[in-house]
């Protein structure tokens, strides 16, 4: 014998949203064949707002070569890392957020500091990755970004151990 909840759910589970519902490019699919001028004006206004939000995020700013690095706490799982990346990408003034693994960080460090003939043996003296705790998110920073504000915002993100911002000299 079905309960009322089971009966209700069985009946209303037949309702499904249209497959056309999507956020892709803020498309507003029209289903009806005709609409009033007022409705047209509202839709065009909403489309304009959607496209403005989309293109604003893609517009060409004067990004410098300056980078920021957000170092992560130990033993962060993938879900947490994805959440941290999402938080960083939302901040004003950052672009091209990329994950740098500890292995990549060590390789980059070696390429930068141990590339000369004299320094060749230095890297080989390390039996383990000395930067094993240095996985981070690297990103470009907007030229006119409020670096102090940006640093504070990044430091407050759960899972962030250290923030390093390189200010470019004019």
């Amino acid at each position: 014998m079905m309960t009322n909840k089971e009966r209700y759910k069985q009946a209303f589970s037949t309702l499904h949203a249209s497959r056309q519902i999507s956020l892709e490019g803020c498309k507003m699919q029209k289903k009806e064949k005709s609409f009033s001028l007022n409705r047209f004006a509202v839709v065009m206004g909403a489309l304009l707002i959607c496209c403005s939000v989309f293109y604003w995020s893609q517009s060409v700013y004067a990004y410098t070569d300056a980078t920021a690095k957000v170092f992560l706490e130990k033993d962060i799982d993938q879900t947490k890392m994805d959440a941290i990346q999402a938080e960083i990408e939302k901040l004003d003034g950052v672009k091209d957020v990329k994950y740098i693994s500890a292995e990549q960080a060590w390789e980059d460090f070696q390429n930068k500091y141990f590339s000369g003939e004299d320094a060749k043996g230095l890297a080989e003296s390390f039996t383990e990755n000395p930067l094993e705790d240095s996985q981070n998110f690297a990103m470009k920073v907007l030229k006119d970004a409020d670096l102090e504000k940006l640093q504070k915002e990044m430091e407050q993100i759960d899972g962030v151990r250290l923030v390093s911002l390189d200010k470019v000299e004019e």
Binding site: F12, S13, L15, H16, A17, S18, Q20, I21, Q29, K31
Partner: peptide
């Protein structure tokens, strides 16, 4: 989306409006 559609349909009584 189907949960929200059911709520919207409950009030709007219209598939198009609910979408």
């Amino acid at each position: 989306k189907d949960n929200l559609f059911a709520v919207a349909f409950n009030i709007c009584k219209s598939q198009a409006d609910a979408d």
